[in-house]
Amino acid sequence: MNNTTVFRKNAASLAGKIVVSLFMLPILGVWTAGSAVCSILALIAAVLGLLGWKGISLTLYPGYDLPQILSIPLGLGLALLLYASFVYTRRFLRRCLHYIQS
């Protein structure tokens, strides 16, 4: 291999790492933190909705509320979806960090 080929290969790798650093890391970091916080908030809202807190209700559209007993299953389902999003986004974030370090 000549020096030009090695330089182009290193330049392309560096450009990829810069793009990942500038765009992917902030997005994945915010998404990971947000999904973790929202999964906890979904559980708290489900419990408060079951207890009859006035500010929390399950409304499909104005004027039609779902029964309070459905707040736990729907809240748990939402919390599980958000937790799964947290786990997979954190895994992808770790892969991006490993790529940048290599």
Rank of each mutant, 00 (worst) to 15 (best):
V87R: 14
N10M: 13
F7T: 14
A12Q: 11
M24N: 06
H98I: 00
A42E: 07
S21I: 07
V87I: 14
Y61W: 15
N3F: 01
L60A: 04
L80Y: 05
I40Y: 09
L70Y: 15
N10Q: 15
R95E: 06
L78A: 15
M1S: 11
R91W: 12
G34T: 12
G55C: 00
I18Y: 02
F92P: 00
I40F: 13
N10Y: 08
G55T: 07
W31Q: 07
L48W: 04
F92M: 10
L51G: 13
Q101K: 09
L81H: 02
S102V: 01
S102P: 00
A79V: 09
G75T: 06
L51D: 08
V37A: 15
L74A: 01
V6I: 15
I56P: 05
Y99L: 09
V37D: 05
S39D: 02
V30G: 08
A42I: 06
V47H: 03
I18F: 05
L14P: 00
S39C: 14
V20G: 02
F86M: 02
K17N: 08
Y88A: 03
K54D: 13
G52E: 04
L82W: 03
L70E: 10
V19L: 12
N10C: 08
T32C: 11
L70V: 13
G55K: 04
L80D: 01
P62G: 08
C38W: 10
T5R: 05
F86I: 00
L51M: 14
L60V: 10
S21V: 07
L80S: 10
I72S: 07
P26R: 11
H98L: 03
L97G: 01
L97R: 12
I27V: 15
W53P: 00
H98G: 00
F7I: 12
M24R: 02
A15M: 04
Y83D: 00
I27Q: 08
L78V: 13
K17A: 07
M1H: 09
Q68P: 04
I27Y: 13
L58H: 02
G75H: 05
P67E: 11
P67T: 10
L50D: 03
G63F: 04
I69G: 01
L22V: 15
R91L: 11
P73M: 05
M24E: 06
T89E: 02
L70I: 12
L74E: 01
L43I: 14
G29M: 02
S21F: 14
S57A: 12
L78T: 14
R91I: 07
R8G: 00
G52S: 04
P62N: 07
G55W: 06
L25M: 14
S13E: 14
T4D: 12
L93W: 06
F7E: 14
Q101A: 07
L80Q: 02
V6N: 08
K9W: 02
R94A: 11
